[in-house]
Amino acid sequence: MDLGQIVFNLLALGAAYALVALGFVLILNATGAVNFAQGDLVMAGGFAAVSFASMLDWPGVLLLPLVMAGLALVGVAVALVAYLPLRRRPPESVFISTIAVGIIAQNAATLGFGAQARAAPPLLPGGDGPGQKLAIILVAAALIGALYVMFMHTQTGRRLRATAQDRDIAAAIGIRVDAMVIATFAVAASLAGAAGLLLANLFFVTPVDGANYILKAYIAVTIGGWGSIAGAVTGALLIALFEVLWPALPLLLPGLDAISGAFSQTMSTIALDIVILLLLMLRPQGLFGQAARSRA
């Protein structure tokens, strides 16, 4: 296993995590609220891919738009049921309402698909291994790029950004804030759906996967800087770095063999945890966050 291969794996995993984290941060910026169901939306995306694949014998790359559209609808539903009624409430209320959505999604998936792991079809027909991972990196990059273009260069994007910046001012200049928030949920959920398809091909999907992904997204977004898009992507890659590169270090640097115990899977997790704590101590506002200060 050489460095190229490791970086390749790292990017594939990191890209999928980045999609999850991006969806999380979009909703965070638009509403100030944490969508705890984001991980469960990834799981739902995985099962959507599985069930579309059972009906249509298509490769993943063609199922992707279907899954994303389907999840966008789910996102709208989540916004209507779990966010809009609570938009004037403290953000922890949305914490709990989306946790409830997650419980519902998880148990609905168990009832509908059973508890066993399922695999989504590969992005490209027949392909396996490196080709698949390259496709995943490209698809994720394309989605992140498309998101950037939509946010920076379209009317809708400008409205979404205005809403994220200040809801009251956005409302005052005639933007329909609730519609924008619903649109944000739809975009965020379809990103989760895309991540779900990609991850469910590489690593399968089970109804209980959501908790793991929401933790990853939460860590990525916080360590990157609460609300920062670039930070979310960086944070996701940092997590993948510790999941893929750290345990592989003894292969790259044979001198480390003597302390190979420090590179077990468990130690990789602990190393990531320690790095996060150190980062928080050195940069309490996250990697890309603005230092908080009141008007001078």
């Binding site: 296993m1 490791i6 991850l199 893929v244 345990p247 003894p250 292969l251 077990s264």
Partner: peptide
């Protein structure tokens, strides 16, 4: 190597076993 159930990429552990 002890693996958490959430571990995704098993390639490093596998490569180390092989090495």
């Amino acid at each position: 190597d002890g693996l958490d159930v959430a571990v995704k990429d098993l390639a490093p552990s596998l490569a180390k076993a092989r090495a």
